[in-house]
Design a protein around this nucleic acid. Structure first.
Lengths: 159, 159
DNA sequence: TAATATAGTTAGTTAAGCCTAACTTTGCAA
DNA sequence: TTGCAAAGTTAGGCTTAACTAACTATATTA
């Protein structure tokens, strides 16, 4: 359809957008410094990224000014942030992965998974939360199963 | 432990390794041309990648010669290929995603997920296959659940 | 309001990973 | 055995995304 309005963003650009989104939720406005800190990059990298995103009409950016998202940008940022949440939640709440590990992986995976998979993953997480076997929720049941497996794998020391 | 022997590969390098691995399974040996075709890149890109991987002792490479994996390389390639398989299988067999879509996504996600998550994901897939509710396997049960959701979402036209 | 610290930008560099065009090597067939 | 097509490499260039060093703008505060 209108593939003209659907900017294709790089993983890096999505990361910037997401960071700005998260900062503006907390602080109303995003400062260049905080974006740099959030993403672990140097300040000039942020300046460059903001110029890019500004050209794509995704952020409101004037040199030395605060940064906000355009409606377009907010929409795309929100989509990325939601992917992140859905993936992380699957890792933590269903697979039982430790939060930090899950967050780091979600940060990378969110750029790899398209809407078809994300939609199904979300539905699946709901499905799992809503069903039980022998009175145990499925996630809990899997956790027991995992612990069984884990006994046999423990020697490998994979953290 | 010995983090010295554990070369950190880029996503691209892992892709090359995986392609070579798949080709050597089928053909005993990998040709530069076929690697290029498999990855959809131009021939000179392959030459460059092979030099890199050769420096890291992951492939046996002599200009104008066939390409094989070193034991090191085979180990790492196998790990990537297994990740791919585990992720794709989860997408297809459990989430019910179409094979091609699942394969493409797995190709990207395989670089994002570490062993902790992969191990748990594999165990989870096994767990799902081994359990039923009301006589339906969990995957089948989810499929029914999904179709219900899908009725409500169909208007959005997300492919 | 002037000094100074903090924030932000500019300029220039690097590295990865891709590309095309042009060249070389290899292997097969006449 | 020579000559041609296919495979592979070299050279050079582009883009993205990062970096450091040095400069400029802003804001704080004395």
């Amino acid at each position: 359809m209108n593939s003209k309005t659907k900017h294709d963003l790089s993983a890096s650009q999505e990361d910037y957008l997401e960071a700005i989104y998260n900062l503006t939720i907390q602080n109303e406005v995003a400062r260049s410094k905080d974006i740099a800190t959030a993403l672990g990059v140097a300040k000039p990298s942020v300046t460059g990224a903001l110029r890019m995103l500004s050209e794509k009409k995704l952020v409101n950016y004037k040199p030395y000014g605060y940064v906000t998202l355009t409606p377009q940008g907010r929409r795309q940022a929100k989509a990325v942030a939601e992917k992140h949440k859905i993936i992380k939640s699957f890792f933590v709440d269903i697979l039982g992965v430790e939060k930090t590990t899950a967050g780091v992986a979600a940060c990378k995976a969110e750029h790899a998974l398209g809407p078809q998979i994300i939609d199904r993953l979300l539905a699946f997480s709901e499905f799992v939360s809503q069903n039980s076997i022998d009175g145990d929720g499925l996630a809990k049941k899997f956790n027991k199963y995992w612990k069984q497996c884990d006994i046999n794998n423990r020697s490998q020391g994979k953290s």
